Structure formats: C-alpha cells, structure tokens
Measured scan of single mutants.
Amino acid sequence: EPLWIRPDAPSRCTWQLGRPASESPHHHTAPAKSPKILPDILKKIGDTPMVRINKIGKKFGLKCELLAKCEFFNAGGSVKDRISLRMIEDAERDGTLKPGDTIIEPTSGNTGIGLALAAAVRGYRCIIVMPEKMSSEKVDVLRALGAEIVRTPTNARFDSPESHVGVAWRLKNEIPNSHILDQYRNASNPLAHYDTTADEILQQCDGKLDMLVASVGTGGTITGIARKLKEKCPGCRIIGVDPEGSILAEPEELNQTEQTTYEVEGIGYDFIPTVLDRTVVDKWFKSNDEEAFTFARMLIAQEGLLCGGSAGSTVAVAVKAAQELQEGQRCVVILPDSVRNYMTKFLSDRWMLQKGFLKEEDLTEKKPWWWHLRVQELGLSAPLTVLPTITCGHTIEILREKGFDQAPVVDEAGVILGMVTLGNMLSSLLAGKVQPSDQVGKVIYKQFKQIRLTDTLGRLSHILEMDHFALVVHEQIQYHSTGKSSQRQMVFGVVTAIDLLNFVAAQERDQK
C-alpha cells in the first residue's frame, strides 16, 4: 500500500453525458421521505430548503428570480454533511469501515464536522487534520463531537509532509485500522450531490432553472449537481466560483495573481482535486475576500440567511453572472454553511477592521482624538531585521541585547519573508524542534498583521487588541530589464502597544 495517494490523481470516472444510468458502476440512493420521529440526527441530513432572495437581486438590477439552496440546514450545519454520511455509508457497505475503526480526514473543517457527527452516532474514533487558518468555532464544535484535532501550517503546499493532507496520511500509516475516506478522491463525494442535492433542486424548481452558481473546494458539490442538471435540464448554465489565490478556475489566465492566501474558508485549493470535473462548468468567476464577507453580511442583514463567507462569494458572483438572465428565468445559488463557524471572524466588526474589510468610518461609535491620525505620526525608528541564514542562537542574543521581542526576517534585497519572535524561538528550542545552530528560517511564521503608514491609529489599535505587534510595510514598484514591473513589500518598522501608548501619553502631556 502506498504511503500516500495524491489528492489530485487523474480521475478514473467514466461518467458521460447521455450515458444510461443503468451502466453506472456505483451504488445510487434515492431521496427517502422522513418519518415524523427521526431514529437519529443523521436522518436530518439532506432535504434542505430552497429560499427566495428578495432584496439583493433587485438591489443589483437582476431581472431573474434568485433562489438560495440553504445547505446550513443540514444536521452539522453545512453541505459537507451529505458527503460525510455518504462516504461512511459506502465504506461500511463495501466492508472497508468496521466497528471500532478510526476515521482520519484532512479538511478545512466542515467535512470534519460532518464526519465527527456521523462518527459520534456510529461509534468510530475520528481524527481531523486541518490548517491553522480555520476558525476556532470549527475546532470547538469538533472537540465537542469527540474528534481529535491536529493543526497544520496554512501556507504548507498540499504535497508537503507538513500539509493537512501529508499529516493525515502519516497518521494513517501509524494508526492500525485507520482510514482516510479522502473527500478529494472519493466518488461518494460527487455521488452524494448527484443522487440527492441535484434531485432536490430539480424537484423544488419543478425542473425549471436557467443558471446554477456554486463555490468550489473539493469540487464534489458542483460536479455532482452539474452532471445531473446537464442530464435533466441541459439549458442550465453552470457557474463556478473560485477565490483569488486558488488555481481551480479555467482558463488558467484567471488564476494569475501574486496573491497566495485568502481568508474565506472551505473553497479554493492549490491543486485540482480528483473529484472535480471542470468540463461540466460553463464559466468560472474569481471572487475576493472583501466581496465575500460584504455579501455574507448582506445576506444575514437583508435576507435573514445566517450563512458563512463562501455563501457571500457565491452570491457576489451570482449578481454578476445572472445579469444575462431575463424576467421569468431563474438562478439558484448554493449557500454551503452557517455563520456559526465564523462568529469571531467576519461577523465581528473588530475582525473586519483588522483585516481591512471594514473602515473605521463605517462604525458610528465615538472615537478618541488620536483615532484618525496616521501611523506615520508615530515617528517610528528604523527596524531591526535579520536574514533567514542567521542562526536561532545568534538571533536570540541580538533580540535580548537590543531589547526586542520580535524581528522581521528579510532577504538580501529587503523583501519581507516573515517574522521571528523570542517566545516562538525559545519554545521551539525547548520542544526540540530546532537547535541553536539551525537557521532562523526554520522558525519563520507568517501569521502576523501588516499595516501601512497611511493607515489610521484606530486601525492599529484594533490590531493591537488581539496581537502583540504589527509590521509596518510599504510597497515598492521595481522595474526589470524586460520592461515588466513587480510590486514588493518592504519593512518600514515594527509597532507595539507600548509605542502607541507612549505616543498618546506624550501628545497629551505636551497639550497640557
């Protein structure tokens, strides 16, 4: 057995438009009618409502009807409940999964919650491996369901041993009777949507819809739904939504950006999952974080739909894509998950301010006199920076000697690579993860907040409520011999709460 199987392995699926269902090699399930009293909570997966979006479509000038398939009504709160249950049931049916076995899954959280929910009911041990950027709410729900959680670096490539995929496979090879159901490759993922989600949409719309818009992560949702719609409703256009920084969209030119990270969760990847059939997507749109969270908040405030950030991405694209539809036509959007997962993220004004998705003037509360002053007023001194090749031991000596707790790590040209902190280095040394002679590049981390000289002290204040420091950066445009230009970030300084307090105190003292 291989040590790991690539999540982007070539698909062996034989589905073709027009091929009889009787030739399918898979076990198919028909939607079942729910009894009045459910035998367990797993029976509350599927049969989610279709809700008309009344205000947002009109606000953006849509002539067509805009409908939302509300997947956050599933038992675990997301569309991923469907595939989690289906993968477990299919693994039980073919004898792969037996009582007492362990389920391991690399996930952005929602599939993990679905699997942990099913594992709690069915009696399996469950280990979820997820990147650090995923919300604390997801972690809390997983723990409450009895799952064990392993976190991995957000910026690790999918084929790196440190990625959530790599760590999951390492655990599988170490733990007896453990299984990775593997949402990236498992046919049960798109089949769950082909058999149930798509049929529900067709039934709820009486077979009449002209466009379907869905955000894409593993691709199982859009693949399964689109294949069924292509068979039953061939005139329906399928629109895929991919965040900026991901590479799922086609044509490839759409993916060209210097951005590699994004805040919206559960969609987009740096590889093409095996289950994603991009041939059934008629057109791709890219979405960005700001519009995703703005539209998610709009869905909550104006439509009462308590959905997550990827739902915002989907609707932001839908109001663009559906401009081509006329009166009497219908566009369906998939709202994948609930706001429950993001209470401390985009639902929080403070978080939105820190990330730059909300401006101070958007909030009406009274601010102190210094709130709208610029960061450049602080008069920061030149920063202490270190090269990635310097040793951890030497870096600790320098920081202690100069009285700093942290320093930016830059390359020879001064471009920011990340940050090192005294606390992080000492804990890594004590844990045996690094040696004093190791290069400081081994303990770089990139989960820090950046701020510009033109940003306000109010925004800085919000950042420092949650973080010990902020890195002050400025952009530099560099022209190359080819005539092309590129933008790079340079370090201007490091600012802490002490710097802000000293500035405010000094100004008030001078005024007296």
Rank of each mutant, 00 (worst) to 15 (best):
Ile272Leu: 12
Lys402His: 13
Asp362His: 11
His480Ile: 11
Gln259Glu: 14
Glu401Trp: 02
Thr274Arg: 11
Ser287Gln: 08
Leu429Lys: 08
Lys449Asn: 12
Asp270Ile: 01
Gln478Met: 12
Ser461Phe: 15
Gln376Lys: 10
Thr364Met: 12
Val434Gly: 10
Leu426Thr: 10
Gln406Arg: 05
Leu306Arg: 01
Glu265Ala: 00
Ile334Trp: 00
Gly379Met: 10
Ser348Thr: 12
Thr395Asp: 08
His468Phe: 15
Val333Met: 13
Ala505Arg: 02
Gly268Thr: 00
Ile444Cys: 15
Glu401Phe: 13
Lys484Gln: 13
Gln326Lys: 14
Asn341Phe: 00
Val440Met: 14
Asp411Ser: 12
Gln450Cys: 11
Thr496Gly: 07
Gly266Trp: 01
Ile451Phe: 15
Pro368Gln: 07
Arg400Leu: 13
Glu361Ala: 02
Gly423Gln: 05
Phe448Tyr: 15
Phe469Met: 03
Leu276Asp: 01
Phe346Glu: 04
Gln476Pro: 14
Ser486Met: 14
Met425Ala: 11
Val410His: 13
Trp371Cys: 08
Arg488Trp: 15
Pro251Glu: 06
Val473Tyr: 14
Ile300Pro: 05
Cys331Glu: 00
Leu254Thr: 09
Ile451Thr: 07
Pro436Met: 10
Gln323Phe: 15
Leu254Phe: 04
Asp289Phe: 00
Gly393Asp: 12
Asp270Leu: 02
Gly312His: 03
Val332Ser: 03
Phe295Gln: 12
Leu380Ala: 12
Leu353Asp: 03
Thr257Asn: 14
Ala382Trp: 09
Glu263Pro: 03
Val319Ala: 15
Gln511Trp: 10
Asn502Gly: 13
Pro388Thr: 07
Gln478Asp: 11
Asp499Arg: 02
Ser246Leu: 00
Ala318Trp: 00
Lys366Met: 15
Asp411Asn: 12
Thr344His: 06
Leu248Met: 06
Ser348Met: 14
Met352Cys: 09
Lys283Gln: 14
Trp284Phe: 04
Gly393Ala: 15
Tyr269Met: 01
Ser287Met: 11
Ala505Gly: 15
Val386Gln: 08
Cys392Tyr: 14
Val241Cys: 05
Asn502Met: 10
Gln507Asn: 15
Leu299Asp: 04
Val280Lys: 09
Ala382Leu: 13
Ile396His: 11
Glu412Arg: 06
Ala322Gly: 08
Glu475Arg: 09
Ile398Tyr: 13
Lys449Leu: 13
